[in-house]
Design a protein around this nucleic acid. Structure first.
Lengths: 139, 139
DNA sequence: TATTAATCCTATCGATTTAATAGGGATTAC
DNA sequence: GTAATCCCTATTAAATCGATAGGATTAATA
């Protein structure tokens, strides 16, 4: 299940990408437009900033802006920052690998085999989707 | 993240499918072989039986067996029983659909669009994989 | 029929994670 | 110097997860 954090984060990024003003987008503005609790959104945008996806301007008239063009922001990157591993089990994760306690041999594990396939098919979607795709207004 | 329940369930099903004896497989035997807490496994097999995937024989010399050939047991079915919805958000779930509180219009929601793609690519894996595939011994 | 061994069922518990809130510090425009 | 905004840490309430406990029911068999 996708966490609210990730859902809110994706909505916020889309909002910023679709925006046309030159000034940075403020948390309050985004929260109101997307029906996201403001304080929660604050912490999410902070995470995205620390990950280098967003930049920020502090103080009055401050806010958040994209560090790259929407077409250069891949879903793989966003999802890993917000949701963590893309794989459903750590033993097939490319970026967050961990061995299973119980499994004596990964190559014989039926779950492992299946989850590699799921991971790869999900990765293919995220690698081929950018924030620009999410931000297109037509459905 | 895949729950332990699902992971254990898949391992147990694989164990039963690979087994060659005619007698039903007992919980204790499976638990020991696959390093699964026995009481936890009991409840998982019960779920699979209620869903019609496993059959059981009660009393002494009882145990569990597959109701269908492994090649007729699709991962879509198993995953829905054990893990629940395949979709990452209820608003794109085929079998467990629910509208989002916050979203005024699904067709305009960037998350919705992305998650439909993820759902479809995951479904493609599960629809094309049966318990027989999981149970092949070669990696 | 009594014993044993298995599934079946309900309830509960502890730990973790999630979603959200609280409260204030630091910074900048005006 | 005041108001507006991002920055940061801590806390909380609720939900979920993984596991355990304790026994009821059923069937084989001695």
């Amino acid at each position: 299940m996708l966490s609210k954090k990730t859902k809110y984060g994706l909505k916020a990024l889309t909002y910023i990408a679709r925006r046309e003003e030159e000034t940075p987008a403020q948390v309050g503005e985004i929260a109101k437009s997307e029906s996201i609790p403001q304080k929660f959104l604050e912490s999410i945008l902070l995470t995205l900033r620390k990950a280098g996806i967003l930049g920020s301007k502090k103080g009055k008239h401050g806010g958040y802006y994209l560090r790259k063009a929407p077409s250069d922001i891949l879903m793989t990157e966003v999802m890993r920052v917000l949701e963590g591993p893309i794989a459903m089990v750590p033993c097939v994760s490319l970026n967050f690998y961990e061995k299973c306690d119980d499994c004596p041999d990964e190559n014989l594990c039926s779950v492992h085999k299946l989850m590699i396939q799921v991971r790869d098919s999900t990765l293919q979607v995220f690698r081929n989707t950018t924030l620009a795709d999410l931000s297109e207004k037509n459905s």
